[in-house]
Each structure stands twice: as C-alpha cells, then as structure tokens.
C-alpha cells in the first residue's frame, strides 16, 4: 500500500529525515515511534503531500506522492498534530467544508455517521471554540474519516489527552482497522504503539533504526526486565531472555527488585541509549 525508498528532508543544516525506507501493507496499523524531533512529523508531511522530499520516492496505492499528489490526496485522511480546525465554526460546518473540498457524496449521512463514531453528534452545532482538547482531537479524527480514506494518517493522535480520552481514540483507530483501512500513526507513547500497531518503525535523529512487529522488536532485547535502584540512587535495568534468567538476577540482588515484561522503551534504550519520552541518556 505504501512504499517509501530513501526519503530525505533537510531544513537548512539539519537533516530531519535521513534516507528513510519502509513498506506498509494494506490494512496494517503502522506506527512511527520516536522522541520529539526524531523526524516523525516530517515523514508524515512528506507522505501526505505537504512537504516535498529532497530526495527519495514514495508510492501510495500505486501513485507517486511527488508526481501525482492529486491522486494521493483523494486517497488519504490526515489528523495533524496541530489542531487545524476552524475554531469559530461549528463541528458540522467544519465537516461540511472538508467534505465539499473532497467531493464527499451523501454528505449529511456521512457527517452523521462520523460524528456518531467520535461521540460528538449531540455537539454538532456547537462552535469548536467551546470544545475541550479531547473533543477537538475527536473532531479532527471525524473529519479525516469523513472521506472514507484508504490510508489514515494520525500524527500524535492522543498527544495531551487524558488516559480515558486516549483510550477512546484507540478504540476508534481499532475500529478503523477493522474497516480495512491502512493506518499510519506517529507517537512517542510506548503504550500507544504497543496497543495499536501491527508494525512499528523506530526513528531516532531522522533515521529509521528498526522496523518490525512490537513482539519481534521486544524479542531483540529479551522478554523480561529486572529493575532495581543501585547504591547511587540510579535505576538499573537488566534485560533477560527468559523468566528464569530474570529470577536468577533478582535472587542475587535480594530485596527491592522488580521483574516486568520488556516494552518498546527498552528496545529504544537498547538501540539508542536514550529514553523515548525525554530523550535522556540511560546508563
């Protein structure tokens, strides 16, 4: 469905995305995981025709993103990181304009359906300014779904949302996958990537450093993590291949040791030596 080869984008001296290649299958939920500034948003902008790559190519559904942007725009829906709704217009007016721009037929029916999916039907005639942050994110999602896109791009879909609203967003994304759409999302939330994605690409400083299913990525580092605080007050993490190995280490350390399953943060730390959410180095 999506195939990118060697995508590169510079902003002045900075290389935002460096020689990125990936392939995403139809119906897959693909996550780009990485800290702020890793190049996730730039990648999404290039895939959605908003930003022209300096080099490399990308095909979506057989069309070239740079040479045939018109065909791409007919096939994609985008939820950007910034809220770009018209705040002074109502939810309905926002969808109406978007639907007109994309030539949506049977508009009233589609608007009702999507507003009900995101649970905003009762607020359809309210001005967006009166919406909470979570409601605005949901309306952005409804707007992107209105055109029934082949590929749905979500740039940090749950950024700044409280956990309950975040889970509501996840449910909607899962439903979108059930409908057969390909979903590409960026996130720096480990939980989000693990909860939603069939495949995860890990980005660090503009480079794609790993790409696989969350399970396979975790298998790189080992299934279990033993954590304890050392004499200097630092959190030490030992990753183990098996549960027995983890118990062995725990037994040696004695009290104050916890054993947990590894996650994508551990993979990121293993590959980069830094934490995803803060970018801090880890010893």
């Amino acid at each position: 469905m999506i195939e990118a080869i060697g995508l590169t984008k510079h902003y002045g001296q900075i290389t935002a995305v460096d020689n990125l290649s990936l392939a995403i299958a139809r119906g897959e939920v693909f996550g780009l995981l990485g800290p702020n500034g890793a190049g996730k948003t730039t990648t999404i902008k290039m895939l959605t025709t908003l930003s022209r790559p300096d080099s490399g190519t990308c095909m979506i559904d057989g069309f070239n993103v740079v040479e045939e942007p018109f065909e791409i725009k007919k096939r994609i829906g985008v939820v950007p990181q910034e809220n770009n709704l018209d705040r002074e217009l109502t939810a309905r007016e926002n969808l109406l304009i978007y639907g007109m721009l994309h030539g949506v037929r049977d508009m009233e029916k589609k608007m009702a359906e999507t507003l009900k999916i995101v649970d905003l039907w009762d607020r359809r005639d309210s001005v967006v300014l009166s919406f909470s942050g979570g409601m605005q994110r949901r309306l952005l999602l409804a707007r992107a779904l209105l055109t029934e896109p082949f590929v749905l791009f979500l740039d940090e879909p749950s950024i700044g949302l409280d956990p309950q609203i975040r889970r509501q967003m996840w449910d909607i994304v899962r439903k979108t996958k059930i409908d057969g759409r390909t979903v590409v999302l960026t996130t720096h939330y480990i939980e989000e990537a693990e909860a939603l994605c069939d495949k995860v690409g890990i980005l660090s400083r503009g480079r794609l450093i790993a790409l696989d299913s969350p399970e396979n990525l975790k298998a790189i580092v080992g299934e279990y993590v033993v954590e304890f605080v050392n004499g200097d007050g630092k959190l030490i993490q030992n990753v183990c291949k098996t549960r027995d190995d983890a118990h062995e280490i725990a037994k040696q350390r004695g009290d104050g040791v916890t054993i947990r399953r590894s996650n994508l943060e551990d993979v990121f730390i293993k590959l980069t030596g830094e934490r995803i959410e803060t970018g801090e180095p880890v010893e």
């Binding site: 025709t49 725009k73 985008v78 950007p80 910034e82 770009n84 709704l85 018209d86 978007y98 721009l101």
Partner: peptide, 11 residues
C-alpha cells in the same frame, strides 16, 4: 492556525 494546510491536502 494551519487551516491553510487543509486546502493544500485536498484534491
């Protein structure tokens, strides 16, 4: 407001 980007991403 980035609303212009909605036009750019429309066919």
């Amino acid at each position: 407001f980035k609303t212009f980007q909605v036009f750019i991403q429309a066919p």
